[in-house]
């Protein structure tokens, strides 16, 4: 079912827990060397989507297929290691599998913390620890690297360094990368596809490379501008605080799941106009029609 080139393929995936749809209608693929960034506010289903992609959560609808024997490297979001656990950076590297010492040293060298190999992980700074976790995932030679909010709690220059590092890891190993970020506007420049989630796919597209734009060069600085990119959302609706979805006048309104928990009685707010339809929007429409019939 999976094309030879795709590591993960999701189509029409929805996950339901406790009678509520956490996320619905998710379609995307990741192929080797590709970077997919999932963005969205808290509770929008980013982590659920990523977990479903790698099989930690079961999809309640739709199809998820993965390449056989997919090796995954996982960089978790928050990691609080009890200080009673004596864990050096070097020991962290072999947490889920033995690795040759030379490759561990190489990975630590690559992320720039070779000098901290024998330090206890509890003594690392946020950025150093994030690098250690990346080296750990990298030394597994994964086909697919999952990074859950890797730049959270890291300052601006640290963020750029980490994105640089992710790019290097991709270039060096050729792995596919699934990045989760809560930053709705600034993404890693190397991202091939941005997917904006909020219970469903709100919009998707490629980020705008801003490296050449003088305004952004001034705003970000030359180095940052080549690492970061701006993602312009193409939403046809807004999510209200009470969970309802408000559709903007003059936009295509195909993101309606009558039973997905995001829509209560708000039929009056829907304005069906076809003139603003983009190619992506049409794709969604097709995908969602199926749900209407199924539901």
């Amino acid at each position: 079912m999976v094309q030879r080139t795709n590591l993960v393929e999701m189509s029409g995936v929805g996950v339901r827990r406790g009678g509520r749809w956490l996320v619905r209608g998710v379609d995307f693929t990741i192929s080797p060397g590709e970077i997919v960034t999932l963005i969205g506010p808290n509770g929008s289903g980013k982590s659920t989507t990523a977990k479903t992609a790698i099989g930690l959560m079961k999809a309640d609808e739709g199809v998820v297929s993965r390449k056989a024997d997919l090796t995954i490297g996982y960089v978790p979001q928050k990691l609080a290691i009890d200080w009673t656990l004596p864990l050096s950076v070097r020991r962290l590297m072999t947490l889920t599998g033995n690795q040759p010492r030379a490759e561990i040293d190489q990975a630590l060298e690559a992320v720039g913390i070779a000098h901290l190999a024998d330090a206890e992980v509890q003594h690392l700074s946020g950025g150093e620890f994030q690098r250690a976790l990346m080296a750990r995932a990298m030394v597994r030679r994964p086909d697919l690297l999952i990074l859950d909010e890797p730049v959270q709690g890291v300052d601006f220059s640290g963020e750029i360094e980490l994105y640089d590092l992710i790019k290097q890891i991709r270039d060096r190993t050729g792995c596919g990368i699934l990045l989760i970020s809560h930053d709705l506007h600034v993404v890693m420049a190397e991202t091939d596809t941005v997917i904006c989630l909020n219970g469903h796919v709100c919009c998707r597209g490629a980020p705008e490379i801003v490296a050449k734009s003088p305004e952004y060069l001034q705003l970000f600085g030359a180095r940052a501008a080549s690492t970061l990119a701006v993602y312009s959302h193409n939403h046809d609706h807004t999510h209200l605080p009470d969970g309802r979805v408000k559709h903007a006048d003059g936009s295509v309104t195909d993101h309606c799941h009558p039973d997905d928990g995001h829509h209560h009685d708000h039929a009056g707010e829907h304005h069906h106009h076809a003139d603003g339809a983009s190619v992506t929007a049409h794709k969604h429409e097709d995908g969602h029609k199926g749900h209407h019939h199924a539901g």
Binding site: K51, G73, P76, L92, L95, T96
Partner: peptide, 19 residues
């Protein structure tokens, strides 16, 4: 030992990486 230690550090990480 290995799955227990890995899930002590982070259960999701252990599970994602096949434990």
């Amino acid at each position: 030992w290995r799955p227990l230690l890995a899930s002590t550090v982070n259960a999701e990480l252990a599970e994602a990486e096949g434990m």
